[in-house]
Amino acid sequence: MREQDVPQDEGIAEGLKEVCYAVNQEGRYVLAASAGWEPKNITNYQAWEQIGEKLADLRREVQAGRLSPLAYHMARNQMDLALLAQYTGFFRWQIKRHLKPKVFKKLKDPLLRQYATLFRLTVEQFLDPATIDHDRIPGQPQPTPEKP
């Protein structure tokens, strides 16, 4: 790659400039700042859209009362049962139970707070995913919140 061809396609990096290695006019390698590259933007959006679709599904499930809010927040924090079990110290089967709305409703405050803190939320935000009005895709315009 030549220095003058270092791509500056803004997108997913949101202003962060990363270092690329490129050859200057004298044929020497130099470090060049790049704002991003279109193929990379495309494939990153692809990954975020996957996450976004999954979250939209889960949000609907939670609103319909088929899953507890924990299911949504777990996915939003890119965690699976194994990782969440490690962070909370709960067993996987305990977390699995917490995914059921019926069990979730009976959870005590300290436990809810533990989850909320891990997800960097207040307990109120944790209990009601509707307070999180959108699932953001980095580097793209904010989607308008879904109307119930």
């Binding site: 990363e18 270092v19 590259w37 990379k40 495309i42 494939t43 990954a47």
Partner: peptide, 13 residues
């Protein structure tokens, strides 16, 4: 997509 991200993701130069 995953292959391209691995190839070009931040950190490969």
């Amino acid at each position: 997509g995953q292959l391209i991200r691995m190839q070009e993701e931040i950190g490969t130069g």
